[in-house]
Nucleic acid binder design. Structure first.
Length: 490
RNA sequence: GGUCCUGUGGCCGAGUGGCUAGGCUCAGGUCUGCAAAACCUGCUACAGCGGUUCGAAUCCGCUCGGGACCUCCA
């Protein structure tokens, strides 16, 4: 397969030519949400980033197995020492069965993905569906000597592991430096070493989500689910692992350690990390109180929002920045994106009505290639958009008659927009649909007021002409004391 | 405190040694009965200081500012 894709590999800190393990096939794993609350926009950015990665790999002709998990066992909360997890905590709070919490927020997550036109992964495995596999992997790690049982819990032995494999390679951390900076956590006295992390935690009676295991009743640790589900569906080594920048340490670092500890294989060829969405320069996060839910964003019903924005405006806005850079959210930036997006949609609507010429004075072929090479350069969507805007200018100029294109070039332009705007960037044209009931209503108001004006002027020729014209397209007008109403009987 | 990232014009945001990013805003123009749209032209840049180089936003050093991770987090 001919392609020239480069990916910035977080673990080597440089762009590398992408070569899949199996020609023609790509294994892609992305850390999904923990379903204990509504996803906010920052989460959406990451999933959108990897949606574009997935879409582009498919566009290139790869058969992609895309795995994105659902974390439905809450990780331990950082600020409590009772071993309670987030989902169980939420369940108690809302008086629900933990799986009700999981179901509720999983449904919500799927709704949000659909709204933003984020494609479904090939497999969406859940942590609770893979408890047995997690136990098995923990047993493998223990028998390889990289983990130990202590008081019903199992911990990963970082120091022993580090003697054979480098721990901290991904996040650039040095094991000795970590000692001075490690916070006191629950179960510290059970660990042989403060850096060790839990693979399995013993559960007490009050714990809601728990399973039987060789070490007693408990629940899986922070990081093991991703190691298990990625290797189960993609193999001991696979091509691309994605996730948010904030998961790099400790989550992804621990994943690598667990995989190496269990299988002896370096699990991931290309690590990709999406950067954070910021609000006034600060990471958008639940704990900061600066996150929006998609609903608040669309309705504009939030104190930090001037108005609502459509999902595609937001998608467009995200794509205007590179995934590896932080992106700052502001009303001004959103409004700029909205205008640009609408301008592009307007040009798209013209694309089907252009008049072809016998020759072209714009190289559509080169323009198309520029779009491809921008995507090949580590999924540089802002550059792709800048090229698409050049296309917008050309479309408008052709319409005006100042630029000419041949029929073949117009066709290539359509193909290119179809490929990049719709298929790869995953945008949809929200402008100018014909079945827009809101638009119909507005149009009818305009027509009716014109007709009423004509009537008021006793210009019945005009008012009747309007009524007859509307009747001809099955729109019936009714005058009454209260005013004029209309019905469509088509 | 440790590790790492970052600082581009009114706003957002690409760009890693020389060649126009782009969007939004603003000003002028073309078109137009008016308006809008569209198109054309223009404006305000590379945090500061020093260094390397024929040449730096881009490499190096220092200073100042912002951020992320080090604890669950997309």
């Amino acid at each position: 397969m001919e392609q020239n894709l480069s990916i910035y590999n977080s673990i080597h800190r440089e762009k590398e030519r992408f070569v899949p393990i199996t020609p023609g096939h790509v294994g892609l794993y992305v850390c999904g949400p923990t379903v204990y609350s509504d996803v906010h926009l920052g989460n959406v950015r990451t999933f959108m980033t990897f949606d574009v990665v997935y879409r582009y790999l498919v566009f290139l002709g790869y058969k992609v197995r895309y795995v994105r998990n659902i974390t439905d066992v809450g990780h331990l909360t950082g600020d409590s020492d009772d071993g309670e997890d987030k989902i169980a905590k939420k369940a108690k709070l809302e008086n629900l069965e933990p799986m009700e919490v999981v179901q509720k927020y999983t449904n919500g997550f799927h709704d949000v993905m659909r709204i933003f036109n984020i494609l479904n992964p090939s497999i969406e495995p859940t942590a609770t569906g893979h408890i047995i596999e997690q136990i098995e992997m923990i047993q493998d790690i223990i028998s390889n000597g990289f983990a130990y049982e202590s008081n019903g819990s199992v911990y990963f032995d970082v120091r022993t592991f580090n003697e054979k494999y480098p721990y901290g390679k991904l996040s650039g951390r040095i094991i000795d430096e970590l000692y001075t900076n490690t916070r006191e956590l629950d179960g510290q006295d059970e660990k042989r070493d403060s850096l060790d992390f839990a693979l399995w935690k013993k559960a007490d009676d009050s714990h809601l989500m728990k399973w039987n295991s060789p070490w007693g009743i408990g629940f899986p640790g922070w990081h093991i689910e991703c190691s298990v589900m990625s290797t189960k569906y993609l193999g001991k080594s696979f091509d691309i692992h994605g996730g948010g920048m904030d998961l790099k340490f400790p989550h992804h670092e621990c994943e690598i350690a667990q995989n190496l500890g269990a299988t002896g294989h370096e699990p991931v060829r290309y690590w990709m990390h999406g950067n954070m969405l910021t609000m006034n320069g600060r990471k958008m996060a639940k704990s900061e109180g600066n996150g929006f839910t998609p609903e608040e964003l669309i309705t504009g019903n939030h104190k930090l929002l001037d108005k609502g924005y459509s999902p595609m405006t937001v998608r467009f806005f995200f794509l205007m920045g590179h995934y590896a850079s932080t992106l700052d959210f502001s009303n001004e930036a959103l409004q700029a994106a909205e205008k640009g997006y609408k301008r592009m949609c307007a040009a798209l609507n013209l694309l089907d009505h252009l008049t072809a010429s016998s020759q072209s004075d714009f190289s559509v072929t080169e323009w198309n290639e520029a779009c491809v090479s921008a995507m090949n350069d580590d999924f540089n969507t802002p550059i792709v958009l800048s090229h698409l805007f050049e296309g917008v200018r050309v479309i408008n100029s052709v319409k005006e008659g100042s630029v000419s294109l041949t029929a073949n070039d117009i066709e290539l332009m359509k193909t290119t927009f179809r490929a990049f705007f719709f298929d790869i960037l995953g945008l949809q044209n929200e402008e100018g649909g014909t079945d827009n009931s809101k638009l119909s209503g507005s149009l009818m108001e305009v027509i009716i007021s014109m007709r009423n004006e004509a009537k008021a002027n006793k210009d019945y020729a005009t008012s009747d002409k309007l009524r007859d014209a509307l009747a001809a397209i099955q729109v019936k007008i009714k005058d009454s004391k209260e005013g004029t109403s209309w019905t469509y009987e088509g």
